Amino acid sequence: MRRQFFSLSHLSAGFVAVVVGFTSSVAIIFQAARAAGANEGQISSWILALGLGMALTSAGFSLRYKVPVLTAWSTPGAALLVTALSGHSLAEAYGAFVVSALLILASGLTGWFEKVMDRIPMPLANAMLAGILVQFGTGIFTELAASPWLVGGMLLVYLPAKRWLPRYAMLLVLLVGVGLALLLGLFHGPALSLTLATPQWVTPQFTLSGILGVALPLFLVTMASQNLPGVAVLRSHRFEVPISKVLTGTGLVNLLLAPFGGFAFNLAAITAAICMGEEAGQEPRQRYKAAVAAGVFYLLAGLFGASIVALFAAMPKALVMALAGLALLGTIAGSLKGALADSASTEPALITFLVTASGMSLWGIGSAFWGLVIGGLSLVFFSRR
């Protein structure tokens, strides 16, 4: 009898990753699109392009390398666009997306980004990952205080399930969480109707102000705040992929979908970690199937555009935060262990963790980048001591 390709662990991890990814930042996508002057049909095209791009790259790379390679849209990039697109037409915005995609493509073809990543010590990479994810761990208990019945019920299911049914722990938590949210009347939103999204082409227009004010910042933020921690997640879980080839692929897909609203694609960090832990399957060599499953869910979300987004938007925040936090507990523990395992780099790793966890932003670049910079600088001084 032929074995099924997906297990319940793969499907539940992939679904949770997509739910967390969409609900945590889809509102920012809407704000960015409206800042560029997009109408409702064009906003739906953005979601279609983003869903299709993430589906192609996530499923494609994961199947190709048999490693859970999950991609995402650039959330810091979308936040940047909300303000940076003011005063630019939609055609200028799409022109900036094309230029940013070309820069990402060039970074993959030249291999310079992978060379930089190869020089980052693993304790610092683990510390950065722990700093990124720790807010989700603490978020469980912040939301427990706000929604005790919902989050408390999910936690009471997670603990015994993790002990006796680890393969199905997150699936059970998801089912119980949705059931409790419905029972408590926490879903809010209009009646859902499934409508297929339609791609809408806008011919890109290239201007100097668009390139300098939108394209370059979008490229820098995507590389420093998204791709950098995305590589750290892969390596902290001991998954090896040719980073330059992955960047080349995301840049190429970005280039093709930019005229439809696909503004930036990159390696995922937070949602990728969900597809790499034990909840995604006991056998590490099979966890790539969770990222493939996520690619399928990305495709469905993109095809049904605004309808699926409305469903995600109706989910209570406590449900999403608790799902993410519980799914990432194992990864947070492993990252902290890897960060503090070597006594020679304990303090630099701790500094990296604290800077990253602080959420600071300097010159538009997020805390993950500055955590590595300040941690690396402290490592130089401590090693000389």
Rank of each mutant, 00 (worst) to 15 (best):
A169K: 08
L172I: 04
V173I: 06
V176E: 05
V176K: 04
V178M: 12
L180A: 09
A181P: 01
L182M: 12
G185S: 02
F187P: 06
H188N: 10
P190T: 11
A191K: 14
L192Y: 10
L192D: 04
L194H: 07
A197Y: 00
V202P: 01
V202M: 02
F206A: 06
T207G: 01
L208F: 15
S209E: 12
S209M: 13
I211Q: 04
I211Y: 03
L212P: 12
A215I: 07
L216P: 11
P217V: 14
P217T: 06
L218R: 10
V221T: 15
M223G: 05
M223S: 08
A224M: 14
A224P: 00
A224Y: 02
Q226N: 14
N227R: 04
L228P: 06
L228W: 02
P229Y: 07
V231G: 06
S236F: 09
R238S: 15
F239M: 08
P242S: 02
I243S: 05
I243W: 03
S244Y: 00
V246R: 04
V246D: 09
L247E: 02
G249N: 01
G251R: 10
L257N: 15
A258I: 06
A258H: 05
P259T: 04
G261V: 00
F263V: 11
F265I: 15
N266K: 08
A269G: 14
A269P: 09
T271Q: 08
A273K: 03
A273W: 02
I274S: 05
I274H: 07
M276E: 02
G277H: 05
E279M: 11
A280L: 12
A280M: 12
